[in-house]
Design a protein around this nucleic acid. Structure first.
Lengths: 136, 136
DNA sequence: GTTCATACTTACCTTTTTGTAGGTACTTTC
DNA sequence: GAAAGTACCTACAAAAAGGTAAGTATGAAC
């Protein structure tokens, strides 16, 4: 009954510990949610195209508000995926980029996004058909 | 100023149309959100392990309520990613599986999830460090 | 004939997320 | 000296997501 989530028992186990998103209590769930959040995905993809300033990101990720962009960036920074570099000048100049860990994550996220973009037509066609189903 | 989102102009363009998640109006945004939704990710990964019944999914995806599981499955079915097969028996018997399109999507989602699970320790370590940063 | 089981749906309520509008600090431009 | 520009933060309000508990249908088991 006792499910292992991410509780290293001792010694070697600590180094081999692996997350399990199916477990509610596993911290991987939270990281997954940050990465797959509405704006998190788009920010990661945008940053995988290179360093961006705050205002640049806002323009690129159409529809995001300042508040949500700031919040998303902070979450990704806290997870160690995004690097924030502030230059002490006026007006303020801040650059955002991916950390090595962030680049790894972004590769996977981009693969998904690219697939969706490439298969949009199929996806939309499937949606049109899928509606009047239900055998029972 | 006029950004192309997913508005096929004519002829060949229709076949070459490609989504752009950075555009607010592009329908790829919605599909992306279904796939990367809190429970959508987990359902796709679960189903990539094979056909499941409703109750099986509920048990596997710990923490999901009946309502959300049903809602998530319906959204994925509508997008043409999940296939629902209902057998007209009593008590009801319904099987969920991935469509070919769903399998493609699930591969990408799983890649991300696996990466997170594999690198949980690094991610958590990075989080611990990333807090007292800020150069300015 | 009451209970049980499955796969849901629905109503109602709470929590979380997101948006809006305004403010801040400081310097350069007009 | 008023306005503009950057990168935010904060309070408030609205919208969306999520949870809980109950109900539905049907036939088989008791």
């Amino acid at each position: 009954m006792t499910e292992r989530t991410h509780l290293p028992a001792s010694g070697i186990a600590e180094k081999l510990a692996r997350g399990d998103v199916f477990s509610e209590a596993c911290p991987s769930r939270q990281i997954l949610q940050h990465i797959t959040s509405r704006w998190g995905v788009l920010v990661l993809v945008a940053l995988s195209g290179g360093t961006h300033r705050f205002a640049e990101l806002r323009r690129k990720v159409s529809g995001v508000s300042e508040k949500m962009l700031a919040q998303t960036l902070r979450a990704l920074e806290t997870d160690g995926l995004v690097d924030r570099t502030a230059f002490p000048v006026v007006p303020p100049h801040v650059e955002y980029s991916l950390t090595p860990l962030g680049r790894e994550a972004a590769i996977r996220v981009e693969a998904l996004v690219d697939w969706i973009e490439d298969n949009l037509d199929d996806l939309q066609a499937a949606r049109a058909e899928a509606e009047p189903a239900a055998v029972l």
